[in-house]
């Protein structure tokens, strides 16, 4: 473990906290989308559950990685090095694009 991980980062801009909160807001937006998808259930059938599941899984994925994300940010600010989280970015936007595709399929087909 890097020695700097044990001391608090000195960042008056509260970058790690703001970043974690930003992910939290995105998670809540996904929950809202998941809930609205359920309103399609009576008219568009059980296919809608795939959309609900994808949105909910993405939200759960964000939720379970929040602690690691805060650690990465605060340790990173202490070390003056934060690795850009390309995996999280690509996974999140792919999930949203997939939600859009499934949504279009629902609107056009079902």
């Amino acid at each position: 473990m890097p020695r700097t991980a044990q001391r608090f980062h000195e960042d008056p801009g509260l970058q790690p906290e703001r970043t974690v909160l930003s992910w939290g807001r995105t998670m809540l937006a996904l929950c809202t989308a998941a809930a609205i998808f359920l309103r399609w259930l009576p008219t568009h059938g059980p296919f809608v559950l795939a959309l609900f599941g994808l949105a909910a899984c993405t939200a759960i994925g964000i939720y379970t990685t929040q602690q690691a994300r805060y650690r990465r940010g605060s340790v990173g600010i202490s070390n003056e090095h934060v690795e850009p989280d390309a995996v999280a970015v690509v996974v999140t936007s792919t999930a949203v694009v997939a939600l859009g595709v499934l949504g279009l399929v629902t609107v056009v087909v079902f």
């Binding site: 790690p16 703001r18 930003s22 600010i77 070390n79």
Partner: peptide, 8 residues
């Protein structure tokens, strides 16, 4: 690193 987090 602050800019990386801001970009995120």
């Amino acid at each position: 690193p602050r800019f990386t987090l801001a970009n995120e």
